[in-house]
Design a protein around this nucleic acid. Sequence first.
DNA 1: AAATATACTTAACACTGTTAATATTTTAAA
DNA 2: TTTAAAATATTAACAGTGTTAAGTATATTT
Lengths: 215, 215
Amino acid sequence: MGIKERKERHREDLRQAILDAAKKLFMKHGYEATTIRKIAAEIEFSPTTIYLYYKDKNDILYALQKEGFILLGKSFHPLMQVDDPYERLKAMGRTFIQFSLENSEFYELMFVMKEPLLNLDTFCVNGQDVDWEEGIAAFDFLLHTVEDLQRIGYFKGQDTKIISLWIWATVHGLCTLQMHGHLEHVARHKLEGLEPTALLPLIFGSFVQFLEKVK
Amino acid sequence: MGIKERKERHREDLRQAILDAAKKLFMKHGYEATTIRKIAAEIEFSPTTIYLYYKDKNDILYALQKEGFILLGKSFHPLMQVDDPYERLKAMGRTFIQFSLENSEFYELMFVMKEPLLNLDTFCVNGQDVDWEEGIAAFDFLLHTVEDLQRIGYFKGQDTKIISLWIWATVHGLCTLQMHGHLEHVARHKLEGLEPTALLPLIFGSFVQFLEKVK
DNA sequence: AAATATACTTAACACTGTTAATATTTTAAA
DNA sequence: TTTAAAATATTAACAGTGTTAAGTATATTT
């Protein structure tokens, strides 16, 4: 049964080639440029061929989103070596922010846009979603770190998950305000003389300083 | 019905009528439904007529965004009567969150989408932007409240603007995570048994509890 | 060799924002 | 009042978008 396997592999190859083309366009020219027709041109196939490998555009976006989470996971990976949970949390925050700035299109796809998740919802109806593992893994890493922090006296008597979600929301809020130009806008109006890129680190610094206080 | 009546409307009226039609579609069927052609159909004019009153679609979105900020301002207005700055801040947070949930399309337009601001950028180049007043006013209200809090012992030695931005980012982060389904998603995976709508208040409560600690 | 299944493409549909050219109406001047 | 000019609105079209139905080669199986 080698022929069938080869065919199957070929099929998977093309599926991957479509995703790679989409990824290339996405990273190079952003979401706007990632159209079905342009992806098709990139792999030198007809636009309709794509629909033989992906249900629709959201299906591709969802696959791209997964790649984004893998990318974020890779950024987090070295931080697992950091023993001190407080230092680890700080580094996680910085890494997360850096990821959002350097891969803003991916970030939008992962945390801002709701389209890719629409696909996921259908999966969730019939039981539990098998996918989205990477996203959950990243959150688990945060959860684990907060747990470690609680073990050494931080967030006494607080619910680990609630605290984790709160931290996530804070950093996510910072990232989106920055990405969407709101921090820069406020800086121009209220913090003249300060370079706009300096604002985010200042706020994040203030946040971690605050965390230290509640030990 | 009313061809003559229609014709009698003067320029500003029609400009407003376009905005009202856009607002109606926007609130009723969301961003997706707010197309030039549908706005035109709503006011019973040709699609191209709209371009005689608004430069492009972003121009309309920007006008809608301003209406959103006025709406948010109205929600904040009663809170100015709250004397205790801590209670005021809490109420502001709750109001902000409530606004984001009840007017999620507006919220997206005001704080998430970057399209409406692209228009603004051109204004900013030649000097300072005359518009966006309502947005700045809302932030000023927060700034003022944090100032009051510092006067009674909160956030000692911290920069008022940085703290305000941090608070904004936190609440904004919570709103977007909720709106985009991430809180619900995590709740399903990590907090089974808890109804998804209960999560946001829990996190917010945990946040204000922390604020109390750093007095 | 004929029938069938697979892989892919062409053509089209129903949309989108936007513009150029055209027609209509209103206003102002001769 | 008639005529020229200006303002206003419309039609038709362009260049895109995601997506689908129908048709065409190619390869596999009978």
